[in-house]
Simulated assay, not measured.
Amino acid sequence: MTDTERPEALAPATEAGLRSGERAAVRAALADLTRAQLVAWLRTPAGAEVLHDAFRRMPDFFVRNLLGEETVARWRVRRPPAEPIEYDLALGPHGCEVRPVAADRPAAVTLVFDSAAFVEMASGARRGVDLMLHGQLRVQGDVQLAMRMERMFGLDGDGPR
């Protein structure tokens, strides 16, 4: 990262909102940032920590009994020039388990986001279909499963936001 690309420090309340893991607080923090500021901050160690934490919290938001059998969804969050954040989520009728990516474990679907798009979708600030239309989310594999992800994590308007 060059000197001109270094992210400015975020306002304490904005950073606290992003770190909170509470969807409403994250959406409020997003309203205080430009997309470029968010992308730059998500490249930092603090930003990486927030992304990892978002994955750790996913089982808390998972809506059970929407799937008949276990399936694996791979999530890849790009944040160049920093390393991407990647996880496999084992989704099933009784819960969701976050796992490290395993090359020997095939995924039914792979969701590839830019970092800001992941935060926007995970917080309910933007819908997946909007992100796809703007090229900020790519889906590889089972598109029908990908289309159900928002519902599985209570982001379809029927669950907690």
Rank of each mutant, 00 (worst) to 15 (best):
R23L: 05
V129D: 04
A25C: 13
A73E: 11
S115R: 03
G95F: 09
E150P: 12
A90Q: 13
D104L: 09
A25H: 15
E86C: 10
M121S: 02
P93Q: 04
M152I: 11
A125Q: 12
A146M: 02
A90N: 14
T110M: 01
G157D: 03
L111M: 14
R35Y: 10
P106T: 11
R148Y: 00
P45I: 14
V63T: 13
Y87F: 14
L145P: 12
T34R: 04
V139M: 01
T110Y: 06
G124A: 04
R64F: 02
L18N: 02
D130T: 01
M152L: 13
A125G: 03
E70P: 13
E22D: 15
P81M: 12
R19Y: 06
E22I: 08
H52A: 06
A102W: 11
A73Q: 10
P45R: 15
G68L: 04
R56S: 09
R105I: 11
R99M: 08
A108L: 05
G135Q: 11
R43I: 01
V129E: 05
R79I: 00
V119G: 06
V26H: 06
A25R: 15
A40R: 01
Q140I: 14
A103C: 05
Q37Y: 03
V119I: 14
G154I: 00
M149G: 00
P80G: 05
A90L: 15
G68F: 11
G128D: 01
A122L: 01
R105N: 07
L42E: 02
T14V: 14
A117Y: 07
R64Y: 00
A13R: 12
R99G: 03
F153L: 03
F62W: 06
A73V: 15
G95E: 03
P100D: 14
E97W: 00
V119T: 09
R57P: 09
E97Q: 11
Y87H: 12
P93F: 06
G17N: 06
L91E: 05
V119Y: 08
Y87I: 01
V72C: 09
E83F: 07
L38Q: 05
E86G: 03
A103F: 10
L30M: 07
A107P: 06
G92W: 15
C96L: 07
L137D: 08
F153G: 02
A48G: 13
M152Q: 12
V77G: 08
A122W: 00
G124D: 02
A108W: 04
P93L: 02
V50K: 04
P93E: 07
A13Q: 12
H94V: 09
G124Y: 03
A16H: 06
L137G: 07
L145K: 08
W41S: 00
Q37W: 07
D88Y: 07
A103W: 14
M58V: 04
A24N: 15
L91W: 05
D60L: 08
S20N: 05
